[in-house]
């Protein structure tokens, strides 16, 4: 069996995954996408892989590679469609709504005046997020109309075209923490809670993490949300709303987990590697069947 791991920066997660594959006795070829020239009409060596696990920190690289590889018939983990749905917050919201998965209320506008109306509809405080981005970057809690006007004007004037999509989320008065659940192969394998005095509870922004037992209710909402985006492997961010209960806030298609292994006491890379091997095995069997 042959598996490749595409990446753009080799972080602790990628090394942990390579070690986990090695422990299973599976050869995995790490490929730095920044050095690759694709010929979409000629799969070449790519056709020899039973599966490619993408671990690009750059979304653009991840989507470019997985779109081309899937068109060549290579099974990608995660699939390009799942990466698209997870990476764009609007796409995630739409997928969750279609699947009937509880998620915070959102208003979307593409013009400045409409964006202000969207904020006022949601009410203060509201949360303005770029549709693409991670680690809490440029996420703003808007407490009043003055702040809303300022942020909207700044986004329109200084931001990229992408920043002109105003994704306004209702602020969830969560209990100073949020929950992250790791879902692999349709199973919720580990969960942590991230606690912070700051309203942004990303560990990238200084939140502290602890392990959390997975209740049946938590398991169900997480597994459903990952199924809604078609991801093989994803981390689900959950907010606890005092009024509506568990809400899916975001899904992460290329999850970071280095600090969650000890916290959750679950060998996340080993489980991810085993699942990737299962996918590669079944992809190989299906390729072997004559048309």
């Amino acid at each position: 069996m042959r598996i490749a791991m595409t990446y753009t920066r080799l972080r602790a997660e990628e090394r942990l995954l390579l070690d986990a594959f090695e422990a299973l006795g599976v050869e995995v070829n790490p490929i730095d996408l920044r050095e690759v020239v694709f010929d979409p009409a000629e799969p070449g060596e790519w056709a020899t892989y039973d599966a490619v696990i993408d671990r690009s920190v750059s979304l653009t690289n991840a989507l470019t590679a997985t779109r081309i590889l899937e068109s060549m018939g290579v099974r990608c983990i995660n699939p390009a469609a799942a990466i698209e749905l997870c990476s764009d917050k609007l796409s995630t919201t739409l997928a969750l709504i279609r699947a009937g998965v509880p998620t915070p209320g959102v208003r979307v506008a593409t013009g400045g005046e409409a964006a202000l109306r969207a904020v006022e509809t949601v009410g203060y405080p509201a949360v303005l997020k770029p549709t693409i981005g991670s680690w809490g970057r440029l996420v703003a809690r808007v407490n009043d109309r003055d702040a809303a006007e300022a942020i909207i004007e700044h986004r329109e004037t200084l931001g990229s075209i992408q920043q002109g999509v105003f994704y306004v989320q209702e602020h969830i008065d969560k209990p100073g923490r949020d929950i992250r659940v790791f879902v692999v192969g349709g199973e919720a394998i580990a969960a942590i809670v991230r606690t912070s005095a700051h309203w942004v509870t990303n560990t990238a922004r200084g939140a502290t993490a602890a392990g959390l037992p997975i209740s049946p209710e938590l398991r169900e909402i997480c597994v459903r949300s990952v199924a809604a985006v078609g991801a093989d492997i994803a981390a689900v961010d959950i907010l606890e709303c005092p009024r509506r209960g568990l809400l899916v806030n975001e899904l992460n298609h290329s999850m970071e987990f280095r600090n969650s292994i000890t916290t959750s006491a679950v060998d996340i890379p080993a489980i991810v590697a085993r699942h990737a091997v299962r996918i590669a095995e079944s992809a190989r069997v299906s390729q072997a069947v004559p048309a």
């Binding site: 920066r9 693409i132 991670s134 680690w135």
Partner: peptide, 23 residues
């Protein structure tokens, strides 16, 4: 730092976070 070649090992300052980076 980022490893930019492996034989011999050379290091460069790692790039700053870009807009489309994340998980």
């Amino acid at each position: 730092l980022e490893v930019t070649s492996t034989n011999p090992v050379t290091l460069e300052l790692a790039p700053e976070v870009e807009e489309d980076w994340g998980e």
